[in-house]
Amino acid sequence: NPDLQTVPHPVTLRLPGAPGSGPGVSEADTEVNMRAAFVARSGCVLLSADYSQIEIRIMAHFSRDPALVDILTQGGDVFRRVSAQLNKKSEAQVTAQERALAKRVCYGVMYGQGKRATASELDVELEVAEDCIAQFRAAYPGVNKFLNDAVVNCRVSGYVETLYERRRYLPAIYSRNPKEKAHAERQAINTICQGSAADLIKKAMIDIHKELCALEAQHRQHQRPTCGSEYWAARMILQIHDELLFEVHSGYLDAVQQIVRRCMESAIHLRVPTPIKFRV
């Protein structure tokens, strides 16, 4: 399961002159892009489909918080909307720092991150981070109840369940060691959200595979141009967290995008939409 997010972005290196060029040759700036090593075959393109804020959307689904559900249903810049609501100002008045803080608080609250870690990550005063966390919990009481209920229910049953009722047992929830117990409590919430996100994308992958097989049969029937020496219109080549990567024949790009969008956005029906973003 390679983590391609660790592949470095392009960097510029200052390299010496060519060997044998003699003294006085100036250094030259050279861009090194490791990501350029990943390319599609001739006649094909790489298509990336990525869920937008999927774990926040799953949290909204489970918590049923009306304010958060409303924000995610309206669309637009989700974290700008959250920041505008928390700061009681229009979206146009929200600064980049306020948006970043709202985003960090959303994920921090969901995963049990404390005020000190939040303040450190965003380089703000401890009081600012503390106030933002308190404001978020007050603005979205359904989220607060969901987080508390997840821990309480785990203490009762010893496990948590995802959307598709996959169970994860957390024996440390009964530990007398405060650190171990706190870690298990965070795992309880993380598993529900991240595990359900895994349910969602795995279901989408199954649905996409079925439709791509049907497209492939049509492709073969009409004997369209192929990618390289193999005979296919599109194939799913990688899953990276909440993102899917496809290699697609250029002539089938529109058709494949329609298939991927339909399957990913309707894989599991939540109380909020599950939009995706494409990159080609």
Results as ranks from 00 to 15, higher is better:
127 E>S: 15
206 I>N: 07
202 K>R: 04
192 I>F: 10
31 E>S: 08
262 R>P: 02
279 R>F: 14
279 R>C: 10
26 S>V: 15
63 S>L: 05
196 S>W: 07
85 Q>I: 10
260 V>D: 02
266 S>F: 13
143 V>T: 08
254 D>R: 09
28 A>T: 09
26 S>D: 13
170 L>I: 04
165 E>H: 11
92 A>I: 12
155 R>Q: 05
50 D>W: 11
250 S>D: 10
80 R>L: 04
171 P>V: 13
183 H>E: 08
1 N>E: 12
259 I>A: 00
10 P>C: 08
237 I>R: 06
244 L>E: 07
105 V>Q: 01
127 E>M: 15
146 F>C: 12
97 Q>C: 10
115 K>L: 13
49 A>K: 02
255 A>F: 09
40 A>N: 06
80 R>F: 07
175 S>N: 01
9 H>V: 14
48 S>N: 14
208 I>F: 00
29 D>W: 15
216 E>P: 00
200 L>T: 04
97 Q>R: 13
199 D>Y: 08
51 Y>T: 08
83 S>G: 04
57 R>Y: 10
122 L>W: 09
53 Q>W: 07
7 V>G: 05
45 V>P: 01
186 R>E: 05
208 I>T: 00
19 P>K: 05
33 N>V: 11
22 G>A: 07
179 K>P: 02
165 E>L: 12
225 P>M: 08
3 D>W: 12
133 I>A: 13
12 T>H: 05
261 R>K: 10
216 E>I: 00
161 E>Q: 06
29 D>S: 14
224 R>K: 13
269 H>P: 01
71 I>L: 06
170 L>H: 02
65 D>V: 05
210 K>A: 15
9 H>P: 03
49 A>C: 06
40 A>Q: 07
74 Q>K: 12
90 S>K: 09
121 E>R: 12
277 K>S: 11
118 T>I: 10
249 H>D: 12
103 K>W: 06
124 V>I: 11
251 G>L: 05
176 R>N: 03
31 E>G: 07
31 E>K: 09
120 S>E: 08
207 D>T: 13
214 A>N: 07
109 V>W: 03
116 R>K: 15
84 A>F: 04
49 A>G: 03
226 T>P: 00
24 G>F: 12
235 R>Y: 09
164 Y>K: 09
246 F>H: 05
86 L>A: 03
192 I>K: 02
105 V>A: 05
